[in-house]
């Protein structure tokens, strides 16, 4: 193993050559993509440099409070993202709260389990391990939960008659919403299932690539990647299940009615 090759900022400027070329093509061909392309590239650069600085500061400080604060900020952003990605949302505090709650419960539980049980840094909250792990778990759970809830709410809103037809035949609210729940779970689980199926064949996962690039033995990198994938799959599953059933509970009531009045309307 050759060890880690550090990059200079000039290396980065050189690496952006092709991206700048794309921008020039876009101007030449009048594709109208120039602005968005440049803005997102700049945005990414600023965001990542900032994150690098912040992470470095947190690592140096080595304080549990700063680590927790960083985790809380990540959770808040992910929660907002879940809310923003749904076309129809639960009204009131349930809208942002339910999805974020399910994601955080699953994410925190699985992160803590992974840290305390398998990775075992000392102390257990050591930010070098806790924050990247929490970030990956949160990101995947966020995608799953937002897809699941979006599908559930759309299916229920469009399939009101179907759900009510089953309620009218004397089925309970859980039985009557089962087709919608199944669809929601399926779409929430799809990204992680696809990721597991394609991993290593089509592309090497980012984290594993990173470890290999920084000089880690590929077999060790694979072990780490598998650990992460199992944790990601577990957290996504828990989050999607929790969010879907909590939302069904909220969108029905004790008298087994479908309560679409607790859902905000779609775009139209």
């Amino acid at each position: 193993m050759s060890g880690y090759q550090a990059l200079t900022y000039w290396d980065l400027v050189a690496a952006s050559l092709f991206l700048i070329l794309n921008a020039i093509f876009s101007i030449a061909l009048n594709l109208g993509l120039t602005r968005t392309l440049i803005i997102s590239a700049l945005r990414m650069t600023v965001q990542l440099i900032l994150v690098g600085l912040i992470l470095k500061a947190i690592f140096i400080a080595g304080s549990i409070w700063w680590t927790l604060l960083a985790a809380a900020v990540m959770g808040a952003f992910a929660g907002r993202e879940i809310w923003a990605r749904q076309e129809r949302r639960l009204i009131g505090l349930w809208g942002p709260g339910l999805g974020a709650g399910a994601m955080l419960m699953a994410g925190c539980l699985v992160t803590f389990y992974g840290l305390a049980g398998q990775i075992r840094p000392d102390p257990v909250w050591q930010p070098q391990f806790a924050l990247p792990l929490f970030g990956m778990i949160l990101g995947n759970t966020m995608t799953g939960v937002s897809l699941g809830l979006d599908t559930l709410h759309t299916t229920l809103a469009k399939g009101k008659k179907d759900v009510e037809a089953q309620l009218l035949l004397g089925k309970t609210r859980w039985e009557a919403t089962r087709p919608a729940a199944r669809q929601a779970l399926r779409s929430g689980f799809t990204p992680i299932i696809n990721a597991m199926a394609a991993t290593g064949v089509v592309s090497l996962p980012g984290m594993m690539t990173g470890q290999i690039l920084s000089g880690v033995d590929p077999q060790e990198a694979v072990k780490y990647q598998l650990l992460i994938m199992f944790l990601l799959g577990g957290a996504t599953g828990l989050g999607v299940l929790g969010a879907t059933f909590a939302s069904i509970w909220r969108l029905t009531d004790k008298r087994h009615r479908l309560r679409l009045d607790r859902l905000s309307g779609g775009k139209s």
């Binding site: 399939g159 759900v163 037809a165 089953q166 009218l168 035949l169 004397g170 087709p179 008298r255 087994h256």
Partner: peptide, 21 residues
């Protein structure tokens, strides 16, 4: 009565029923 039991005793057929399968 639980609502599902009530709806089995007092059955409502809407003008347009739903078909979920």
């Amino acid at each position: 009565l639980p609502a599902p039991e009530w709806r089995r005793k007092v059955a409502y057929v809407p003008a347009e029923s739903g078909w979920w399968a």
